[in-house]
């Protein structure tokens, strides 16, 4: 591939590709990510749709929050089990709303560490109906406690 064909002007996500230079030599070229530049909007569209769809399933009592985050993070029950140091069978039970309550707080903390969400995220989702309102979950040094900040963006 010629250097000019791999060059993408996108500073936010840089990658190194190898290509044929003008003088015919082969070497590294630092450039923007083609897929991020051209397809990131599509990624977020699909991700948001997935979040909405699975949040509805949690609300409808079809799945537990653990199953919700597991799908979002593209993990399998067996991989998740290995990460939270529980059996796959137990993780599969925790994925159902009926048995979610059997998980201990300490086990939920381990799940949250894998999903990188505060422990409160296992019990609630905060959504805003108003435009320009930003809700942020802030983790604290206490693994069992987080703070929500609600701010309106300045006009």
């Amino acid at each position: 591939m010629k250097e000019k064909d791999v060059r993408v002007d996108y500073r936010k996500h840089q990658v190194v590709l190898y290509a044929e230079k003008r003088d015919g030599s082969y070497g590294p070229v630092r450039t923007g990510s083609y897929i991020t530049k051209n397809y990131l909007d599509d990624y977020w569209l699909k991700r948001n749709n997935l979040e909405r769809e699975y949040l509805e399933k949690v609300r409808g009592g079809e799945i537990s929050p653990i199953a919700y985050y597991m799908v979002l993070e593209e993990l399998t029950p067996s991989e998740l089990a290995s990460r939270v140091k529980l059996s796959t069978r137990k993780v599969k039970r925790h994925m159902t709303p009926e048995h979610f309550g059997e998980a201990t707080v300490e086990q939920l903390r381990r799940y949250c560490e894998v999903f990188n969400v505060p422990i409160a995220g296992m019990f609630q989702a905060v959504v805003t109906r108003k435009k320009g309102v930003r809700v942020e979950e802030l983790k604290t040094d206490n693994p069992y406690f987080s703070i929500y900040t609600i701010a309106t963006e300045k006009k």
Binding site: V6, L17, Y18, Y34, I35, Y39, Y43
Partner: peptide
């Protein structure tokens, strides 16, 4: 999503392009 990941696995996930084939050529 999975079909588009073919592009990511070949180009973006630290391969140097074309699933390491460009780096191997170098």
């Amino acid at each position: 999503h999975e079909i588009m990941k073919i592009n990511i696995l070949l180009e973006d996930q630290g391969t140097g392009g074309a699933g390491f084939r460009f780096m191997y050529a170098t």
